[in-house]
Amino acid sequence: MIEVTNLTKYYADRCAVKGLSFSVKKGQIVGLLGPNGAGKSTTMNMLTGCLAPTEGTISIEGYDILEQPLKARAQIGYLPEIPPLYVDMKVREYLDFVAQLRKIEPSKRKQEIEQAATQAGVSDVMSRLIRNLSKGYRQRVGLAGALIGHPPFLILDEPTVGLDPKQMIEMRQLIRSLGKQHTVLLSSHILSEVSAVCDHILIVSGGQLVAQGTPEELQAKMQGGNGMRITVMGSAQTALDTLNQHPQVGDVRIETEENGQAQLLVEMADDAELKATVSAQLALAGCPVIGMAANNMSLEDIFLQLTEQPQTAQTDELPDSQPEETSETQQEKQEEQDESDL
């Protein structure tokens, strides 16, 4: 288990990571999500011992990264954003070098190398110079290097950046399959990737943790109660006024108005009868309804919403302090329990 408490890093006087606390439990695939410059790479560099934190502690399987660096680092396989490959070596030589660096016994080395190469899918390029490999293969060789010695934790910094769509999908499948044997922490600024691969998501912005949970939890947290998206023909203002008169309708917001059509975000229950009356009233007012759907916030929206205002978000109280989530009860409690576990 990786425990991070109050992690802070200053570069000169610029703050890259501020008061980050989280933990990664065994067997999880955790995604560190954030826009560029959110402090993802800095965090990963600190987790792997490449950088020392200005403040805060990191413990990996109980080994503090500063107190027992060698033992802590032995628990981790790290694939940095730019794979650290010696391009003048052949793949087999490189993996052998990594195995020696990681102090694998000579008798087991060959087997370890074969295994890592098979897992990462580089068995067919073992005798080629790394210089001559494509970007996708280089990434895989880097991953094979991280896999050598079966470290319980894999830390992958933007593992799919620069790959073509097919390679991206392959890499994701690979990470998923690795998740069965290793605990994986990966960073990305691509949301769909993280939600497709990860069991648990940590969203960072401006060096702070702004939200965490499973993809479903995050979605549930941010759904904003019962919202409906209603599209009408005609004037948006008329529709707004009509809707505001209805007692069971809460807050109404005009989203777009163009080509004689208007889209409104309406706070109301997803109830058939209510929907029927609302649509009848709108039709009477001269704004016939042409579309009505429950407005589920996508993870994309959540991400944007969370990362746009990093200053206002406070890590500790975030899940409860968001005004949108008043009606979430059971799930909320479940989450609180989860967090108190951490």
Partner: peptide, 14 residues
Amino acid sequence: RQRTDQLWMTAPVS
């Protein structure tokens, strides 16, 4: 420059 130093910075070697 090539960032290969990250390999031994993060490996269990001093």
